[in-house]
Write a protein that binds this DNA or RNA. Structure first.
Lengths: 186, 186
DNA sequence: CCTAGCATGTAAGCTGTTACATGATTTG
DNA sequence: CAAATCATGTAACAGCTTACATGCTAGG
């Protein structure tokens, strides 16, 4: 669906190998779109076949050689087309919400640890995003003036920060609710 | 992964047919987990085979007969097991965030309509959730005292409301950013 | 010496989407 | 009379996940 397009955006921001793309999908662009190396290699192959991207073998010392991919004309056009196409507004997909509703048929108290674990993960992500924001956009090390691309990246990151803050508040609400109803069974 | 479990929760809340489940996945539990009727029928068949649920043919007048599914012992146990298993905290998956970053390589102004369209959809969802909250939990028609299951459903719905509010603020931020950088190209 | 990181892939299986297919009844 | 709703399914395909597979170098 959009993995191709996410790869195009990432390669326009900076050309790189399949491995490097996989790393980027663990952070940066990966905050909003995840992909594993297996998916990425498969899609890269197809995109080269379609003429969307070019490959260049880059010999390296001390490391295995790599293939550096960069966006070709047809790839740029494909991205521009996709930007003009409407995409579906996406909803949430939360295992945890299903679990919370399921808790009514088990022991709600047993879910407390799980919710607290999620809370820790989201708190860490928030810290990580805030550090990235300071590093790249708001801190003393950040460039004094941002170009359009950086402004947009910052806006996307602010969205991630807002999401994590909202999620933390939501999980606190869950914990309060779980504790209020105690370990009662219905 | 969790479609089986979402179905178990829904059938515990109230037994019903595949068709009825498909309707519920368009609202209620579907706010956090979507599924189409094709997926649901396929999974129901498997769950009957595994002994997780029972089927009962219900003849109807004026309507086609239906198969009513209800949770069997092994299904209850499977749900209890899943509730004890940790699940991965999920991240976002937003086409729109990818598009926003891609806008730096096209005309950012072209995205304004798309973001506004998403804004309208999310505003509608928020209105819809708030109406549901009044109807089932906070309004004059709502039950005066809620049981544990209803408290948990309400907590989940509050999460949906918080998510839509956050998304609206985020989309407004996007629009302000797109307008600030104008239609400049880099 | 062992672990982590760099680098690339294949194969099998499961999940999800889209399209096709049928047929009755109710509502406008 | 047409469209919407109720009700159940099949088939083909696309996408994603998990496991397997290899091999080299740098650092502790």
């Amino acid at each position: 669906m959009a993995l191709e397009h996410a790869i195009l955006v990432s390669l326009l921001e900076k050309p790189g190998s399949g491995y490097e793309l996989a790393r980027r999908f663990e952070r940066s662009i990966g905050y909003f779109w995840t992909a594993t190396h297996q998916q990425i290699y498969r899609v890269l192959k197809r995109m080269v076949g379609d003429g969307w991207i070019d490959v260049r073998e880059v010999p390296q010392q001390g490391r295995p050689d790599k293939k550096e991919y960069s966006v070709a004309g047809p790839g740029r056009e494909a991205l521009a087309r996709w930007l003009r196409e409407p995409v579906e507004p996406e909803g949430l997909r939360h295992d945890l919400a299903v679990k919370i509703r399921g808790a009514a048929f088990g022991d709600p108290a047993e879910l407390v640890d799980e919710v607290e674990r999620h809370r820790r993960v989201h708190a860490e992500r928030l810290t990580h995003y805030l550090a990235g924001e300071r590093r790249d956009f708001t801190g003393p090390e950040a460039p004094p003036a941002l170009d359009a691309g950086q402004e947009l990246q910052h806006a996307v990151l602010r969205g991630g920060i807002a999401y994590e803050r909202m999620t933390l508040a939501w999980l606190d609400d869950f914990l309060a609710t779980l504790r209020r109803i105690g370990s009662g069974r219905r």
